[in-house]
Computed example of a mutant assay.
Amino acid sequence: MDFNIIRVARTILNVTDLNRSREFYIDTLGFIETESTDTHIYLRGLEEIHHHSLVLQKAEAPSVEAISYKVSNDKDLDALENLFTAKGLKTKWMDKGSQHAMGRALRTQDISGLPVEFFHEMNQVERLLQRYDLYKGSRVQRIDHVNCAVPDVQKAHDFYSQELGFSCSEDTIDEDGKLWACWLHRKHGVHDHAFMNGVGPRLHHIGFWLPDPLALIHACDVLAALGFAHSIERGPGRHGLSNAFFLYLRDPDGHRIELYNGDYLTCDPDVGPLHWKLDDPRRQTFWGAKAPDCWFDEASEVLDVHTGEVCRMKEPLLKKKKPEFII
């Protein structure tokens, strides 16, 4: 391939009340505020050396503007434009200066209709990994992954693996041998981008890495103490898939955040993918607890990178059989 995608690096969320979002992400969960304006808040984790990994953007309605990947070299952006254009996917350039603290970026609607962005340059800031005096709330370290609902998981899997160079760590296969969900990675963790069968395109959640499992428990205590107990949607628990500890939260606009710790290395190409059967209940929660219906049914709408309108959603090709088996 003529390009190298390093990792998922940021997301841009449209939110309706920046003050309420500030209370949730900064005062409660402990995200680091790099900068803010009347219309934007730029956040990062304690480990991160780049300007931000999460943008909260004031808007009339909640939605997702972009899911962003960092690439190795600025020339990779031109190679990616050539690829998307050859596949009939229209691209859009975000010039340097049009986005705060970043160089130029390439946006497109991917094969599933998700708004994706690729960039190389972002301003660097102080890494706060050993500023333990700033460890508050969930003690969030870094962005880890995104999970998206799409109508055709096999189509998404094939494009990301064959055209973009992603590898599959784990997947879920139904009784007919159809691909129900997949976990794809560029960095050496379980996933940068997961795809799950569902109405889409939609962003199901953004996962952020915590320093240890106890940080999840502490986050629950802080959420409850500050009046955000209602934001706890699912967990804490341990996934079968990925083996990680998890806690799912809903922010004031309904965007879903996963606090995450404890998956495994995937750098050895001889390992994986690990296949799970759809009817194995340990996939979603290794300890056996089922997820609430809202976890399956609700997700964030995404925007068209060219029109700014909410993308039209499609029903999944594979129909639900037992919702409690979906992860």
Rank of each mutant, 00 (worst) to 15 (best):
D2I: 03
D2N: 10
I5W: 11
I12A: 07
I12K: 11
L18D: 01
E23R: 14
T28V: 01
I32V: 12
E33T: 10
E35S: 11
T39N: 14
L43C: 00
E47Y: 14
I49E: 14
S53K: 10
L54A: 06
L56W: 05
K58Y: 09
E65Q: 06
E65T: 05
S72I: 08
L83E: 08
K87Y: 13
A101Q: 08
R104M: 01
L106S: 06
S112C: 09
S112E: 04
P115N: 04
H120G: 00
N123V: 10
V125S: 01
L128M: 13
K136A: 07
Q141K: 15
I143E: 06
I143D: 05
H145D: 07
N147G: 07
D152S: 02
D171W: 03
I173L: 08
V190W: 03
F195G: 01
M196Q: 05
M196G: 10
L203C: 11
H204V: 11
W209E: 12
L210Y: 13
P213A: 10
H218M: 10
A224K: 15
L226C: 11
A229L: 11
H230N: 14
H230E: 13
H239F: 05
G240K: 03
A244W: 03
R250V: 08
D253E: 12
G254V: 09
G262Q: 05
Y264N: 05
D270A: 12
L274V: 14
L278G: 03
D279E: 09
S300A: 14
S300F: 02
V302I: 04
L303T: 00
T307K: 00
R312S: 15
K314N: 08
E315W: 04
P316S: 02
L317D: 06
L317V: 13
